[in-house]
Design a protein around this nucleic acid. Sequence first.
DNA 1: TAGGTGATCTTG
DNA 2: AAGATCACCTAT
Length: 198
Amino acid sequence: MNNKLNKQFYTRSNVTDIARDLLGKFLWTNFDNNITVGKIVETEAYCGATDRACHAFPDKRTERTEVMFREGGYAYIYFVYGMHHLFNIVTNVEGRADAVLIRAIEPVEGEDIMKTRRSVDISNRLLTGGPARLTKALGIDVSHNNTKLSSNTIWLTDGESVSEDQIVATTRIGVDYAGDDAYLPWRYYIKGNKYVSK
DNA sequence: TAGGTGATCTTG
DNA sequence: AAGATCACCTAT
């Protein structure tokens, strides 16, 4: 359960498969010997070639989206609303701009460090449920953009297996600008998990 | 439910 | 060069 996910996992071509498979996986960070670990419980898939909700649509290379065109297994982190850092996992082969947004984790290790970073003293959804809450809890910000996810600062491991009947697929959050693509059921979460965002 | 906050992309 | 927009959170 602590095996690092390998390149074969990240470079598969179907981003929605990867978004589902990421549920239950463990996301680790180690900054200045502060180790924090969360179980991924909510994800969203984005596809640069076909999906209007994706920053890289339609295969548009800009300074910001360049990392999404790399081969799978890198971090795409961007800054929004003047204050929030959102963490994505780049997938597919080089030249295909797909990514999975991590929307919620459940604390596994280092919960006290997470509380300190978040400046709260709570042990519920408000600690790590929500894409900006989890990056803050894990100490991730845009300076970690482009990090290879087999590094020793940010990485993923096998975690816990999640069966198909525990997975809910529904529409993505905050993508109303995407026209019909806003209705794609590309948000996935573990049914009943308390850390899933609202 | 509204306001905060700044990078990014378009000319709204 | 300026203005709208934004894969959100917090406190009212």
